[in-house]
Computed example of a mutant assay.
Amino acid sequence: MITLQHTEECLSLAFVHALAGRAGVSLASQRVHDYGIDGTFRSVKIIGKRRVETGYAVDFQMKATTTWEHKGPNVVYDLEVKNYNDMVQRDSEATPCILILLCLPTDQHQWIVADEDRLVLQRCCYWMQLEGDPSSNSYTQRIFIPRKNALTPQAIVSIMANEQKRRVGI
Rank of each mutant, 00 (worst) to 15 (best):
D115H: 11
N149Q: 10
Q141M: 09
G132W: 04
I145D: 15
T152W: 00
Q110I: 02
Q108P: 04
R147V: 07
H109I: 08
L130W: 04
T140A: 02
Q110D: 09
Q110G: 04
D115M: 15
M128I: 09
T106G: 05
R147K: 10
I143N: 14
C125Q: 08
E131M: 01
A150Q: 10
Y126H: 12
G132S: 12
P134C: 03
P153Y: 01
L151N: 12
F144D: 14
F144R: 15
T140L: 00
R123N: 07
P146H: 11
L151E: 10
Y126I: 04
R142C: 01
W111I: 01
N137Q: 12
Y139G: 01
C103H: 06
S136L: 06
L119M: 07
P146W: 08
S135A: 07
T152C: 01
I143W: 02
W111K: 06
V120C: 02
P105C: 11
S136K: 14
L104E: 05
C103M: 02
R118Y: 03
D133T: 05
S135E: 10
N137V: 01
Q122T: 07
L130Q: 12
R142K: 13
D115E: 13
P105H: 15
L151Y: 03
S138T: 13
C124H: 15
M128V: 14
R118S: 05
A150S: 14
P105S: 13
P134I: 09
S138N: 14
S135Y: 03
S138Q: 11
H109C: 05
H109N: 09
W111Y: 12
S138G: 06
I143T: 12
T106R: 15
Q122M: 05
K148N: 14
R123Y: 01
V113C: 08
L121K: 12
P153A: 03
S138I: 08
E131V: 03
L119K: 07
K148F: 06
Q110V: 00
D133Y: 01
V113P: 00
S138F: 04
C124T: 15
P134Y: 01
W127T: 11
D117M: 10
I145W: 06
T106C: 03
P105L: 13
P105I: 15
C103T: 09
L121S: 02
Y139A: 06
R118P: 00
Q129M: 07
Q129C: 02
T152H: 04
Y126T: 06
F144W: 07
C125G: 05
L121Y: 03
D107V: 12
L121N: 02
T106D: 10
Q110C: 09
S135L: 02
I143R: 13
T106P: 00
Y126C: 03
D115A: 11
I145R: 07
C103W: 05
R142A: 03
Q108G: 00
C103I: 05
P146G: 08
D117L: 11
L102G: 02
R123T: 08
Q141P: 00
N137E: 12
C125T: 15
L102W: 13
C125W: 03
R123I: 00
S136N: 13
L151V: 13
P134T: 05
D107T: 09
Q110H: 11
A150L: 06
Q129G: 04
V113K: 14
S136W: 00
